[in-house]
């Protein structure tokens, strides 16, 4: 079940408890965590000082292009409702079918303070 809408800004990173509660079920639903690569950063033309982002990502497969584009429309509407920037990459294949990959992250999230004796 989805958590209620988040209020306030910036939003903090997931806590350990939130991670345990939400991320493990998401992994079971084929979501994965991945990290933005230097190649992607260069492709976006951002600075080398740009912080590396960890994001949630999932690839969705569709039987045909009609259902694929219908899904993109649904994603667009959800993005507007949730005030989420939408990014996606298409043209991929999953199990021999049309696939769309959706990365999800918060670009200006609040990182917790490191412990003073932490590395």
């Amino acid at each position: 079940e989805a958590p209620p809408p988040v209020k306030g800004w910036p939003t903090p990173w997931l806590t350990q408890d939130e991670f345990n509660h939400y991320m493990l079920p998401l992994y079971e639903h084929n979501w994965r965590t991945t990290i933005e690569t230097q190649k992607q950063i260069q492709a976006e033309g951002t600075q080398s000082t740009h912080a590396l982002g960890t994001f949630l990502e999932k690839t969705f497969a569709f039987d045909d292009s009609r259902s694929c584009f219908a899904a993109l429309q649904s994603i667009h509407e959800l993005c507007e409702k949730e005030k989420h920037h939408c990014e996606w990459t298409g043209g991929g294949r999953l199990d021999g079918k049309n696939a769309v990959t959706i990365p999800v992250c918060t670009h200006t999230a609040m990182r917790p303070e490191w412990p003073e004796d932490g590395s």
């Binding site: 988040v6 899904a71 918060t106």
Partner: peptide, 27 residues
């Protein structure tokens, strides 16, 4: 703390809603 990219409850909510939204559309 510094504002940097990361995974937040906002993203988790979006991912779960996305799964629910696309449940009938994926193959």
């Amino acid at each position: 703390g510094r504002k940097v990219p990361g995974i937040t409850l906002r993203d988790v909510r979006f991912a779960i809603l996305l799964d629910q939204t696309l449940a009938c559309q994926v193959s």
